[in-house]
Computed example of a mutant assay.
Amino acid sequence: MDDRGLAYGDGLFETILVRDGVPLLWEAHMARLERGCRVLGMPLPDSRALACLPAEAGPGLCVLKLMLTRGSGGRGYLPPDAPTPRLRWQTAAFTPRPEHWRDGVRVRHCRLRLAIQPLLAGLKHLNRLENVLARSEWSDPDLAEGLLCDSEGRLVEATCMNLIWQRNGRLETPCLDGCGVAGTLRAVLLDRLPIVEVKAGPEIAADAEAIWLVNSVQGVWPVARLDDAKGVPLANWKIGTGHRRLQAEAHALLGYPVAFAR
């Protein structure tokens, strides 16, 4: 009960796709975890101990979730001078959503606005109340995701995925210097493709030629329809070969097939 992760969200987590005991995008996940430890002032767990964990997942496709807290101690919000981090993990079998790869998904804008905190921007820290509240805005099973803006009205991310879109033939993604989670698949795609980080309002989504939702577990979901926060349609896209190029690049990294439009 005195764990600081439980009490204050004082910690970090990683959600890693594992195929037959082999973790995907492991280096990117470890780099983000290391950066998070550096920002929070926590020692990073032993790399050899971390490297052994994916084998715990066993055969098949699984998700390995790592949770690292500052541990116990300190006085109130004041952390201990010499923290003893607590590492916990679990594995679970995973089945992706190929119909989302193939047919695309319907998304909506959320009413909730993300708070701006540059020091924590990009980190996958344990305090995710904003995402919980945003996800509670809808219960329609036909809606796959919600798009989030920050408190200044800039488009940032989806509730649990990153955003990439094409505008005037150029691939763009929101700049995450104020808030949001810098996903590992997004990071690798930024290194491999000419994707430009931009600051833009939510109206850019409806004007885009194509939009994708990406993360390192689900892969790439093309967006077929965008609604406002009240469910009014704003834009529709026909999912075709133009959507597959980005999907092919990303899915090659995750061992997923490239979907084909009907």
Rank of each mutant, 00 (worst) to 15 (best):
E137H: 08
S72K: 12
R186H: 13
L254E: 01
T159F: 02
N236V: 12
V63T: 11
L25D: 03
A82Y: 09
D140W: 08
A182Q: 14
A205C: 14
Q247W: 03
M42H: 06
M67E: 11
L61Y: 05
G71W: 01
L61M: 15
G11Q: 03
V258I: 12
A134K: 02
V107I: 15
C175G: 03
P80H: 06
G255R: 10
I211P: 06
G180P: 12
H243M: 07
G231I: 13
F94G: 05
A28N: 01
A28G: 04
G5P: 04
M161E: 06
A49D: 14
I116H: 09
A182G: 13
L33W: 00
L87W: 09
E27D: 15
C175K: 13
L133N: 06
A49G: 14
V188A: 10
P23S: 08
G9T: 11
G21W: 01
Q117V: 13
V39G: 08
D150Y: 04
S136A: 15
V198S: 07
L126A: 11
T69M: 05
G9E: 02
L189V: 10
R154A: 10
P45K: 12
M1F: 02
L40P: 05
F94H: 15
T173G: 03
H109F: 13
A93D: 12
E209S: 14
P83E: 02
R35P: 07
L253K: 02
A250H: 06
L213C: 12
L129W: 11
M1V: 04
Y77T: 04
S216E: 08
G178H: 14
L6W: 05
A261H: 13
L50A: 04
N215H: 11
V220N: 09
I16H: 03
H109A: 03
D228M: 08
P222N: 10
P233Y: 08
R97W: 11
L234R: 13
W101S: 09
M42L: 15
D177M: 07
D81A: 15
W101D: 09
M30S: 03
V63A: 09
K199H: 13
R262H: 13
V188T: 15
H109K: 04
L226S: 08
G153D: 07
F260K: 14
